[in-house]
Computed example of a mutant assay.
Amino acid sequence: MIPRVAFQGELGAFSELAIRQQWPNGATAIPCRTFPDAIASVRSGAAEYGVIPVENAIIGAVKVALDALRSAGIEVVERSELRVPIHLCLLAPRGASLAELRNVHSHAVALAQCRIFFARHGWLEPAPHDDTAGAARMVAELNDRTVGAVASEMAAERYGLEIIARHIEDVPANWTRFLVISAST
């Protein structure tokens, strides 16, 4: 049976990469708007598992995710954990250039992993978004050459965006630790 796995974000998010790593033979990724929504999907049985990022090599604890797990209390249990290499890309509509970009959207946690890149490119204004892949989808829909996103290569492929710069994370050995959770009953 192919497991259903809830995660925060949209398809193309780094959590989807974690799902692919944990279940190489396949899983159905269930996108959820927030971490509490992903955990609620697990608690309700809509998903057998959830994949939640809890720590990143650059920024440390993913507080919003840890808070959501604490709120769930004993209703969910940790089944395993995995570490996923995180390589961030600057994405834009096809034909855009780095010089044209002005606003760059992504999850606040991803933007915090690229402080050096933004410091070196002072004309770029980071803008928080609910998630990395959602920011990529929005950039594709806007098709405005002044608006970009920080997300994965997978998001670039999924939403038809051009990769303007690769490996823009502050630390080359960047990773995120994810917990795999299930309902406790």
Rank of each mutant, 00 (worst) to 15 (best):
R83V: 15
Y49T: 05
E55I: 08
E125V: 11
V109L: 08
V139E: 10
A61F: 08
V84P: 06
G73K: 02
P85C: 15
L91H: 00
H105T: 07
D131H: 11
G60N: 07
A57M: 12
R120A: 05
A135Y: 07
C89T: 11
D131Y: 04
A133E: 07
H87P: 03
N103F: 15
Q113C: 09
A108R: 09
P93R: 03
L111W: 09
I59P: 00
L88Q: 12
V77Q: 11
H105S: 13
E78Q: 12
A127K: 14
A92Q: 09
V76N: 04
E81T: 12
C114Q: 00
I58P: 05
I52T: 09
P53K: 00
S97G: 08
I74L: 08
G50E: 09
G122Y: 06
L91E: 10
G95I: 02
I58C: 00
P53R: 01
E78A: 04
A127M: 14
I58K: 01
V54K: 02
V84H: 08
E75W: 05
A47H: 07
S97F: 04
L91C: 12
S71Q: 04
Q113K: 02
M138K: 07
H107I: 02
D131W: 10
I52S: 14
A110D: 06
A65I: 02
A72G: 04
H121C: 01
A135D: 10
A140R: 04
A46H: 13
V84I: 14
D130P: 04
L88R: 01
P128M: 01
A57E: 14
M138D: 15
S80L: 03
D130V: 15
M138Y: 15
E55Y: 10
S80A: 12
E75Q: 03
P85I: 11
D130R: 08
A112Q: 05
P126E: 01
A96G: 08
A65V: 02
T132K: 01
G45Q: 03
A140S: 15
A47Q: 09
V54F: 13
R70I: 04
R102G: 14
P53A: 11
I58R: 02
C114T: 01
R70T: 06
D131R: 04
A46V: 03
V54I: 15
G60R: 01
G134F: 01
V109M: 00
P93G: 08
H105L: 15
V64L: 13
G50Q: 06
D130N: 11
L124C: 04
N56A: 13
N103V: 09
L98K: 12
I86G: 13
L82N: 14
E81Q: 07
R120S: 02
S71Y: 03
A136F: 15
E78V: 14
F118I: 08
I116A: 14
A127W: 08
V104L: 05
A140F: 13
A57T: 08
V139M: 08
A96H: 05
A112T: 12
A92G: 15
L101H: 09
N103K: 00
L111F: 07
L98A: 07
A96D: 06
W123S: 13
V54P: 14
E81M: 15
E55F: 15
V84D: 13
E48D: 12
A92I: 02
V62H: 07
R79E: 14
